Amino acid sequence: MRWRVENIDFSRIDVQRAAANEDLMLLLCAASFVESGSDLYSHTLIDFFDGDDDFCAWLRDDWEAEELQHGRALKAYVGAVWPDFDWDASFAGFFAEYSRTCSREQLEKTRARELVARCVIETGTSSLYRTIGQCADEPVLAQIAERIHADEVHHYKIFYQAFKRYNQSERLGRYAVFRALLRRSLEIRNEDEEIAMRHVLAARYPGRVGDPQFSARRIERVSRMVMDSLPIDMSVKMMIKPLDLPARVQRGLLAATGWAVRPLSRFLFSR
Rank of each mutant, 00 (worst) to 15 (best):
N7Y: 03
D9L: 04
D14I: 05
E22D: 12
L24Y: 06
C29D: 04
F33E: 01
E35A: 12
G37P: 01
S42N: 13
L45H: 09
D47Y: 09
F48I: 08
G51K: 09
G51T: 13
F55E: 08
W58Q: 03
E66I: 12
L68K: 06
R72Q: 14
A76N: 07
Y77D: 00
A80R: 10
A80L: 00
W87F: 15
D88Q: 13
A89P: 00
F95Q: 02
F95N: 09
T101R: 04
C102E: 09
R111N: 07
V120E: 02
V120T: 04
I121Q: 06
S126H: 05
S127R: 01
R130S: 12
I132N: 03
A136L: 05
Q143M: 10
D151W: 06
F163L: 14
R165I: 08
N167A: 11
S169E: 12
R171G: 09
R171I: 13
V177Y: 06
V177R: 06
A180L: 11
A180H: 06
L181Y: 08
N190W: 14
E191N: 12
E191W: 06
I195F: 07
M197G: 06
M197F: 15
H199D: 03
H199E: 03
H199P: 03
V209F: 03
G210M: 09
P212I: 15
Q213R: 10
F214T: 03
S215C: 11
R217K: 10
R217D: 14
R221F: 04
V222C: 14
R224D: 13
M225Y: 04
S229E: 13
K241A: 15
K241T: 15
P242D: 00
D244F: 09
D244E: 15
V249A: 14
Q250H: 07
G252H: 00
A255N: 06
R271T: 11
